[in-house]
Design a protein around this nucleic acid. Structure first.
Lengths: 340, 340
DNA sequence: ATGAAGTGGGACATAATTTGTCTATGGTGG
DNA sequence: CCACCATAGACAAATTATGTCCCACTTCAT
């Protein structure tokens, strides 16, 4: 298979580019259909005319149909697209990258999705789908799933289906309210997840930063105590990884904290922990819930983070990540990770 | 693997055309090297400039080398060319055509060689090679091989190698001298074949058309009698198929015969038998040797004929051909055969 | 030796294609 | 009904491909 491509590449060096171009057009049409030429063009970053030539070609091939409401895939196009998915993965060499990254990061598994989620929303959705697929694979019997917040986790939540919920699931937020806007909060996300999988969830709302005193009294609240126990006994953790500064800003952290992060050169964030490039913890949001050291006890830890912009963060966090971690990322991030 | 090619056919038909073009250029260079741009261009039917662009590209890719004596394949180019053969076969869908033709013509096997021997001498040589390969496959132990004349059979003779002659072979002309110029006569060809395979052959020269009287006396000649017996006990027959009119002219047949062929709409010729489109025998050159009805007794009958121009002839003859026939033809003929 | 015939490479006007951009026209949904 | 988004058409500008010569050189047969 690879040899076949290699042979062709000698005689048609731009083969892969063209294939990829047409594939991505098909994919976008499939995703956005019915869609107009202009919006598709701007979405793909092609000029209108170029896209038009390609679309004309695809129409010629009976892969897309065009009517006055926009372009859609024909059923042929749909089938072809499905066949293409696997092919493109192989062509890009994703399998190879996955293995290589797994070894370099010294974690359990790496799953890479084609594309770059910085550039396309679709890819973020694909990250979510990959995560859902992965969850399904590792969930057995009863499960408690602890989740964190963030836009990536929100994307995961959106693509979960009742099929995954066939097993008995209970979603809980991994940690007390870690800032952020409501829709990306862990509480919200775990509730969406439970809704989409038709399973249960628990809310866990505690003030962002607590003094030791309050902490002690909170912990004695039976409700909170119970949820805390659930969290610590989770069989799966889903979490995102963020860029340190971006996260701090999103949480509207105080100036002194921002300064601390800057002087300590924090680059990555996960669970409210901030890391520098060496993977050292330079700051930690004080809150109740899952602590970094608890992770080692949890059988399945799935980290989802994509986009070339998150590379530094991913790299930093991965130095401390437990070996049981499964990283789900995208091609854009993976390539950059492998370069460094 | 098949899926890859199918997908490419759908998504990159234009590129595959280019692939094919470049392949044929490589192939021709390999065949004619060292060769100049002009002669290659006229050979391939491209204009000089077009060929030049392609050659520049191939040079860029380090597949051909250019010096003042002409263009040649580099060793890389040579390797690639070999790898390409199989790919191109699949791309053109030759395997499919072979099966389809086999069923339609109701014969034992069809082997198709890429290209059109009307247009390129190379393809005729390839026909020969395919025939040689096929012979090797079906020859076992001692063999008597009866061969006919014609330029196609001459091409076969030229590419036979001693390797095939490892088995014990004896070449004999299938029929008495059936006209034609000396170098394409059955006698000449069987002698070349024996030379190239380092094996034996028998000559068999008898006047073209004999009266019954002479026939009877000839048959009593021990020499001729012996050869006749050899022919009838042959384990393999190699023969060409020709266009009726062309063959008649080449044999400088008498006007009354030409007329007979025309009024009876003869289109094909094999072994000195002329057929109309329905496969009916409309004329027969009277000569000693293998008769059409003897063919059924011979285990391996290999018919070699290529070129779109021979399609009618092939189609006509195949209506009468024994079921044990193996047809070796080229893409040009095969496509046209499948159309009708 | 010499000339014919072959070679690659340079040059250039012209044809063909690709590309960017704008307009016309017509459904669709609020 | 109107604003909006859709496709298709059109067309000039830019780019690329193509056809055609010519030149200098080598080779090879005469």
């Amino acid at each position: 298979m690879q040899s076949l491509i290699d042979i062709q590449k000698r005689l048609l060096p731009d083969l892969l580019q063209v294939l990829h171009k047409r594939y991505s057009i098909l994919r976008h049409i499939g995703f956005m259909q019915p869609v107009g030429r202009r919006s598709l063009a701007s979405n793909l970053g092609y000029t209108e005319r170029v896209l038009r030539s390609e679309v004309d070609f695809l129409k010629e091939q009976n892969l897309v149909s065009i009517n006055n409401i926009g372009m859609s895939l024909t059923s042929e196009g749909k089938n072809l697209l499905e066949d293409l998915e696997g092919l493109i993965r192989e062509l890009i060499g994703i399998d190879v990258m996955e293995l290589e990254l797994k070894h370099r990061l010294k974690i359990r598994k790496v799953i890479i999705v084609p594309g770059n989620s910085d550039e396309s929303l679709m890819v973020k959705e694909d990250l979510g789908k990959a995560c859902a697929f992965c969850m399904k694979k590792y969930l057995t019997g009863k499960n408690i799933i602890a989740v964190t917040g963030g836009s990536t986790m929100a994307a995961v939540a959106n693509v979960l289906t009742p099929e995954i919920g066939k097993k008995e699931l209970l979603f809980v937020p991994a940690r007390g309210g870690i800032g952020e806007d409501v829709q990306n909060q862990a509480n919200t996300i775990s509730s969406i997840m439970s809704k989409n999988t038709k399973s249960k969830h628990r809310v866990f709302y505690v003030p962002d930063q607590v003094s030791n005193e309050i902490y002690q009294s909170l912990i004695k609240e039976p409700e909170i105590h119970e949820v805390l126990n659930l969290i610590k006994s989770a069989s799966m953790v889903l979490h995102g990884i963020g860029d340190a500064i971006t996260m701090a800003e999103r949480r509207s952290s105080k100036p002194e904290i921002m300064e601390k992060l800057e002087t300590n050169a924090a680059v990555g964030e996960a669970f409210g922990y901030y890391f520098n490039e060496k993977g050292e913890i330079v700051h930690k949001v004080l809150t109740i819930g899952l602590q970094l050291e608890d992770l080692a006890q949890i059988p399945n830890v799935i980290a989802v983070a994509g986009g070339a912009s998150k590379v530094k963060a991913i790299k930093a966090y991965m130095k401390k990540a437990p070996a049981s971690t499964i990283l789900i990322t995208d091609e854009g991030a993976a390539r950059k990770l492998l370069k460094g």
